[in-house]
């Protein structure tokens, strides 16, 4: 079969993720889109472990670990350091979880985004602090069980994408491992753009979401098809919906396999369905307007 996805593998076969972890598939595709001239900055998150303990590394590109709150600041330093040495070409990519992006590192990326620092910031969003064993973050959806919300999260997920757009950045996109060609294309595109680029990757997590590891890609696809995680990109302000199913699948189909939604009663489910539909309508309206 012919595919647009490059053959080169920059994620090695040995890594330390759980079985069925979407963030490893995501890293593999991301590096296919970016290529070898990439340096990765990773704050505290599952990838601190996944990349391997010293002296091993699961990556075939340089990696710099950074403290939880400072991935974007560290990355803008890396870029400045490379430029000082005459290297304008290498892409500097932050690879951060939602804890570091939605919560503790928000100031750091907001500063970098507002200044238009030349980097690609990727948030692999698994909707909770997974590396520390499933605690709620600002990315945790309403109603979800975590170790710190045993009776269900009481607040809606933070609208990070809107927050990013408010920073006038040069490129923003969402990407899903269930759509590899779209995924790789977005990373290749982001590589060629200057300034602050942001990609939010949907990242199902079997132990944190309580589902069977073989369902990872199915869940990633269902999230797109139910409208929970729409695929779109915004380039220099221009909005593009990458996939618009004629009719969204019911939210329940996506929620059913996940133990973390077990506590959701029918009333709450209806409310959630309502907010997903409403957000989808807004995206369709935006698509029509652009």
């Amino acid at each position: 079969m012919k595919t647009s996805i490059p053959q080169e593998e920059l994620l090695r076969s040995g890594h330390q993720a759980c079985q069925g972890c979407a963030s490893t598939v995501a890293m593999r595709y991301a590096l296919k889109g970016l290529g070898r001239r990439t340096i990765i900055v990773v704050p505290a998150c599952c990838w601190t472990v996944i990349s391997g303990a010293a002296p091993n590394s699961s990556l075939d590109v340089p990696l710099l670990h950074a403290p939880f709150a400072s991935a974007a600041a560290t990355a803008c330093g890396v870029k400045a350091g490379l430029q000082a040495r005459g290297d304008e070409e290498t892409t500097v990519m932050v690879w951060a979880g939602d804890g570091s992006t939605y919560d503790i590192g928000l100031q750091s990326w907001s500063g970098a985004a507002e200044r238009g620092e030349d980097m690609l910031y990727v948030c692999y969003d698994n909707e909770a602090y997974m590396n520390t064993g499933v605690q709620r973050s600002g990315a945790t959806p309403m109603g979800v069980w975590t170790m710190t919300t045993p009776d269900g999260n009481r607040r809606p997920k933070k609208d990070l994408d809107a927050l990013l757009e408010a920073h006038h950045i040069s490129y923003a996109a969402t990407a899903s491992i269930a759509y590899p060609e779209d995924f790789v294309r977005k990373f290749a595109k982001a590589r060629a753009i200057k300034g602050f680029r942001f990609i939010r990757v949907f990242s199902p997590c079997p132990p944190g979401w309580k589902y069977d590891p073989d369902k990872t890609v199915d869940l990633a696809r269902l999230a797109v098809l139910t409208g929970v995680f729409p695929l779109y990109e915004i380039e220099a302000g221009a909005f593009r919906l990458n996939l618009a199913p004629a009719k969204l699948k019911p939210l329940a189909e996506y929620l059913a396999p996940q133990g973390r939604y077990k506590g959701l009663d029918p009333e709450a489910l209806a409310r959630e369905q309502g907010s997903v539909t409403e957000r989808w309508q807004r995206l369709l309206a935006r698509k029509a307007a652009s």
Binding site: A66, S70, A73, T74, G81, L82, R85, Q107, S108, G111
Partner: peptide, 12 residues
Amino acid sequence: SAMASLLGAASA
């Protein structure tokens, strides 16, 4: 972030 960016720059 000042010191974090120097972590990055010096590492480069």
